Simulated scan of single mutants.
Amino acid sequence: MSDKKQKGVLVLAEQNNGEIHKVSYELLNKGKELAEKRDLPLTCLLIGGEVISAEELNYRGAQTVYYIKDSSFKIPEENSYKENVVAFIKEREPEIVLIGATNFGRSLAPRIAAALGTGLTADCTDLQVNEEGRLIQIRPAFSDHLFAHIKTVKDPQMATVRYKEFAEAQRDTSRVENIVMMKPYMALCSKSKIDEIIPMDDMDITEAEVIVAAGRGLRKKEDLLLLEELARTLGGKVGASRALVDAGLAESAMQVGYSGNRVKPKVYIACGISGAPQHLAGMKDSQTIIAINSDPSAPIFQVADYGYVGDLYEVIPQLIHAWRKEETE
């Protein structure tokens, strides 16, 4: 069998500004398990426009890292990435392709699957191999009440996997560095052009250790300033329920839940959030959950470690005052 057609497990590594996204290491961890069950090589495809520590992907378990480097890839853009990933997959013919279910991955993966004429299971929470050697893609359905087991009949079998679903692959610097530099199949794509880059760092809540989240109890968009003040006091960030995003009171990047971000902060403060299954699916694994709601029967109290029955507009200022007082003492 030639090197090009090696029928392996391929992880698409995500990077931004030269920094590899941690979901890539989680995918390598699960990918290694799948590759060993199928006796397949585990490889990684990295696309970027600057110097990236690609060897880190070797240290995390990738036997070979294919690095397509060109200045046009400095900023990740779906159409140009899609053209290169599709060309690479057609040439190498991997059996399984794993992509992180990040904002970028969720936008990129369907384009790749459509171009290849194959299936795609989105937002998987587990991956297994059946007796026939086919990939079983597991994802929650009906707001986490059921788990669907999906099998793709055509290769490549593609899946996006939720961030923070699996542990990161352990780092081992004794592993062999095997990086294959490649020229881009297509450097520029005429279908799209980047006119402006709007930083979203302040809205990225996935790495926050403290999240203060707002729900229907918030009356107007300006009132998010109150939650932002509490979040700043605690060194955290502000999240939101889907209801708030749908109402235009919060940005989609702030959404926590089944169709938003899955977060696992040390402290999650739910303010005016009733606790619908859709929302709980995104935050129930937080280390400590604090709920503030005027309705004592709100479902959020069933998962909360601490609860305040009261108006968030009264409780939050008291919390801010108490924490600031403690800091000065």
Rank of each mutant, 00 (worst) to 15 (best):
S80H: 01
E228D: 13
Y185T: 05
Q318A: 14
K221A: 15
G236H: 06
K5R: 14
K5A: 13
L188H: 10
K82C: 15
M186H: 05
K4N: 09
N103D: 09
K74N: 12
A87C: 06
L28I: 10
N261L: 03
I320D: 11
V309L: 08
A35R: 04
G8A: 08
V180F: 10
I52L: 09
I52P: 03
I292S: 00
Q157R: 14
I197W: 06
I89S: 07
D295M: 07
R324L: 09
L28N: 07
K4R: 08
R106L: 14
P110W: 11
S53D: 15
K22G: 00
L120W: 03
I292E: 00
Y313I: 08
P110F: 09
G260H: 06
E91I: 02
W323A: 12
L312A: 01
F88E: 04
I197T: 15
E229I: 00
Q170L: 10
Y306I: 11
L40A: 14
A247D: 11
P299V: 08
D223M: 05
R232F: 02
G272I: 11
S2C: 03
H321A: 15
N178H: 15
Q63M: 12
A240R: 07
K37A: 10
L234D: 06
G236L: 08
N261T: 04
I300D: 13
V97D: 08
K30Y: 04
A187E: 06
K266T: 09
L188N: 09
I194W: 00
P296K: 12
G18H: 04
L27S: 08
E314Y: 04
G239N: 09
K7L: 08
A243E: 13
L224N: 00
I290A: 00
G310L: 02
S241Y: 06
Y163M: 12
V180I: 15
S252R: 12
K237S: 06
G18V: 03
G260P: 05
T102A: 03
R92W: 08
E168S: 10
I96S: 05
T233Q: 06
A35T: 02
K237W: 09
K32T: 13
T328D: 11
L312D: 00
K193Q: 15
Y268M: 00
P277A: 03
A276S: 15
A187H: 01
T102D: 01
K22E: 10
D204A: 07
K237D: 08
P156F: 06
A115M: 05
S274R: 11
V161P: 03
K154A: 10
R162P: 00
A167L: 13
K82E: 14
Q137Y: 07
V315T: 13
L120R: 04
I211N: 02
V303T: 14
P317E: 05
Y306Q: 05
A62R: 12
D172P: 10
E209Y: 02
H149V: 00
H321S: 13
I75W: 02
E131S: 15
G61S: 10
L224Y: 14
V263C: 01
F147Y: 14
F73E: 00
R139G: 01
K220D: 14
F147H: 13
S24P: 02
I96R: 03
E228S: 12
L227D: 01
A122K: 05
E329D: 12
N29R: 10
T173Y: 11
D126N: 15
T121L: 00
L312P: 01
P76W: 03
V51M: 11
N130S: 04
G48C: 10
T64A: 09
I300W: 04
V245T: 05
P265K: 07
E222L: 04
I68V: 15
